[in-house]
């Protein structure tokens, strides 16, 4: 099979919070590229649905005093069956993203 990905994929495991959808409240990233992301989340979103989520970049990952956050809007393109811990693996195309500073993200919560 040919790999048709156009962006570099990074194995980065970071916590995330799904915004505005109680069915899939929390999770973590498995890998991310500038074009797409693979996440583990609680619950099962529908293929084709849009998810808005906030990825937390811990202080120790970037060597700063405060953590950073990346807010993304993704379109679900694949859902893998739930694992034993009840989480679903989902692949999303990143439609839009924005970097948030800690103060900014707290203000919008």
């Amino acid at each position: 099979m040919t790999d048709i990905r156009t962006s570099r994929r990074f194995q980065v495991h970071l916590p995330l919070k799904v915004l505005g959808d109680q069915k899939v409240p929390t999770g973590s990233t498995e890998n991310i590229s500038a074009a797409g992301i693979y996440l583990w989340v609680d619950g099962e979103p529908e293929i084709g649905s849009f998810l808005e989520f906030e990825i937390t970049v811990p202080r120790e990952s970037i060597g700063t005093e405060k953590e950073a956050k990346i807010r993304c809007k993704g379109r679900v393109v694949r859902c893998d069956p739930s694992s034993d811990n009840g989480q679903t693996g989902i692949a999303c195309v990143i439609e839009d993203y924005d970097f948030l500073r800690t103060a900014e993200s707290e203000a919008t919560e």
């Binding site: 570099r8 980065v12 590229s33 500038a34 970049v57 970037i62 970097f99």
Partner: peptide, 10 residues
């Protein structure tokens, strides 16, 4: 910048 941030975190 997203790819730059990911590269840096990685």
């Amino acid at each position: 910048r997203l790819e730059l941030a990911l590269f840096t975190i990685h």
